[in-house]
Design a protein around this nucleic acid. Structure first.
Length: 586
DNA sequence: CTGCGAACTTAGAACACCAGCT
DNA sequence: AGCTGGTGTTCTAAGTTCGCAG
């Protein structure tokens, strides 16, 4: 797989070879599995120690002041900090919290503090809020001092040397302790996320490199020399027992090449997607139940851009599903619905407990299979009881090198963007109109991939404000128009060759035009914002849309790339900006 | 196969910051 | 100068994939 992709990736050469940034994408690849030859860094940055409460701030239990041990106090502080958050009102959160908090208490504390409802974190909460407020109200000079200090930290910990290049590290800070904030109905929400010590951390760097110094009085858990992986440091977190990594920034060579490769695989799928669709179309009639289930799952993944859907351990995480883990209760079949036949109604929680709700007309063969899969099953049973992601991906891998379920999301997202841009963009449009078209194309993808966001709390207000602006502009425009008419009339009835009057007419004309443009711009903005209320465009832009489509579109429409990519996006997609010509086709 | 863990990508929320307004 | 809304950045949770051991 690696070979196939790498070969194709070399076809197009960046045109600005002289530039270091461009030629970087052309360096020799290492043998399979080797990610680097030299890696040196300063290790991760640890969060500050807990600062004990000042003597005038108290924790109260059952109305009485209680001086807590340092350990118990720190954990009390975590809860106090979150008091404004909905989390602290949730039963599971509170129970998990209290259980873990009590583990940090001394015997004495534990025998006293037996009921979270009797705990009063008010003073601690107030102190925390005051601190946040004070930080906000710092003078310019004070803020500058903080900024410079942060800058120092970035300089020290934010970069590494990987082969010949100084690279930015993505997350060089160890995650601070706190209360676990799982998404949705997470059974572990509120548990104590423990402070990570250097003794928990594995460092990865090359043999020749200077080993980072652990904080004074501490040692690393291990120093590893593994160049088959890209991480610089890792530790195991205590909530799920999973490993956390310190890795490079998205603008690094290593991440950039991987991203490029991802889009090349998706383009390869474009070449064989018709065959694959024919194949699973045939498989819908297979005698083998597994094959039929696989075919229907693939149909969903392809048509609806569903995620693969691995099984999850019950009780460890929120109850969410993807394609292969769909249960009977997540779909409803309608022979007829709203004028369509064979409609599948989906309603389930996907990644991050985001709801997926969709009514989709499907082909008869799929519909019939679904009916079959539902026979004699309970709501809680698996829809695809003979299938899992491993089997599905194994099959996909045999159809095309490098193919897995998620490639369909990348492919369908990118191809949709390209099609939509072609359909929506008019050469003759002005820039704001072109940008609206781009956003609409982007939005079509976000809807396909179900990238949602909570509507901004201030949404209705800010929409009303914008509308008020539009109304005001309309009034001004009407006024300007009347004035223009007046000026024209005067110029006609009086001496029409009076240059002063002619000049006035011209000026009024210009004013009207300017006003109209501003109005249009505002109206486009309003449309864009309204359509975007619950949709997040960023995720697809960052993860699913081949940047070369966007770069080529910018070149074709003469829209500056800055209008659609901010600085970090331009850095991340530097490879695409460097190499893409206006005739690029995904 | 199947189960498991490691490594890496993808995701929305929270937070920080800054431009444009009053 | 202070406010505010919107954008960009940071954070870290939650997915996918793959390879390995049994």
């Amino acid at each position: 797989m690696k070979e196939l992709v790498t070969g194709e990736m070399r076809v197009k050469t960046p045109k600005t070879e002289a530039l270091e940034s461009a030629s970087r994408w052309e360096e020799e690849k290492y043998e399979d599995g080797v990610k680097w030859k030299f890696l040196e860094h300063n290790g991760p940055c640890f969060p500050a120690e807990y600062q004990p409460l000042p003597s005038n701030v108290h924790f109260l239990y059952d109305g009485k002041k209680v001086k807590l041990s340092l350990e118990a106090e720190e954990v009390a502080f975590f809860f106090a900090q979150m008091l404004d958050h909905e989390y602290t009102t949730k039963k599971v959160f509170r129970e998990n919290y209290f259980k873990d908090w009590r583990k940090e208490m001394t015997n004495e504390e534990r025998s006293l503090i037996k009921d979270l409802d009797k705990c009063d974190f008010g003073e601690i909460h107030a102190m925390h809020k005051a601190k946040v407020e004070a930080r906000k109200n710092m003078t310019k000079e004070e803020k500058l001092v903080v900024k410079e200090a942060n800058q120092k930290v970035v300089e020290e910990y934010g970069y590494c040397l990987l082969d010949h290049h100084k690279e930015r590290i993505g997350n060089f800070k160890i995650e601070p302790p706190g209360l676990f904030r799982g998404r949705g109905e997470h059974p572990k929400q509120g548990m104590l996320k423990k402070r990570i010590q250097p003794e928990d951390v594995i460092i990865n760097c090359s043999k020749e490199a200077r080993v980072p110094k652990p904080p004074a009085g501490h040692r690393w858990k291990e120093v590893r020399r593994d160049n088959s992986v890209t991480w610089l440091a890792s530790w195991t977190e205590n909530i799920q027992g999973s490993i956390k990594y310190i890795m490079l920034n998205a603008n690094s060579k290593l991440k950039g090449e991987k991203d490029w490769e991802k889009y090349e695989i998706a383009r390869k799928l474009k070449l064989c997607v018709d065959d694959i669709r024919n194949q699973y179309g045939q498989d819908l009639k297979s005698k083998q139940m597994v094959t039929r289930q696989r075919a229907v799952a693939l149909y969903f993944i392809d048509k609806l851009a569903l995620r693969a859907g691995n099984e999850k351990e019950e009780g460890e995480t929120a109850d969410t599903v993807g394609c292969c883990s769909l249960r009977v209760e997540h779909i409803t079949l309608h022979e007829k619905l709203e004028g369509n036949e064979c409609v599948v109604e989906f309603d389930f929680l996907g990644k991050d407990s985001i709801r997926y709700y969709n009514k989709v007309p499907v082909i008869t063969k799929v519909f019939k299979n679904l009916k079959l899969f539902l026979e004699n099953k309970q709501p809680g049973d698996d829809l695809f009881d003979r299938l899992n992601t491993g089997m599905l991906n194994k099959h996909l891998g045999s159809l095309m090198a490098g193919l897995s379920a998620k490639v369909f999301r990348t492919y369908n997202a990118s191809i949709t963007l390209q099609q939509q841009l072609k359909e929506l963009t008019n050469k003759s449009d002005n820039e704001p109109e072109k940008l609206l078209s781009y956003n609409r194309a982007n939005r079509a993808v976000a809807i396909l991939c179900n990238h949602q966001r909570a509507p901004p709390k201030t949404f209705d207000q800010s929409m009303a404000n914008l509308q008020a602006k539009i109304d005001a502009r309309k009034e001004t425009l009407a006024l300007e128009k009347t004035e223009l008419k007046q000026a024209k009339k005067e110029a006609k009835t009086r001496n029409s060759s009076d240059p002063k009057l002619q000049n006035l007419v011209e000026r009024k004309k210009a004013a009207v035009k300017r006003c109209e443009e501003q109005l249009l711009k505002l109206e486009l903005q309003a449309t864009d914002r309204e359509e975007n209320k619950q949709i997040s465009l960023g995720t697809s832009k960052l993860n699913y849309l081949d940047p070369r489509i966007s770069v080529a579109w910018c070149k074709n429409t003469e829209v500056p790339i800055e209008k659609i990519y901010n600085k970090s996006l331009r850095d991340k997609f530097a490879w695409a900006i460097d190499m893409t010509e206006e005739d690029f086709e995904f």
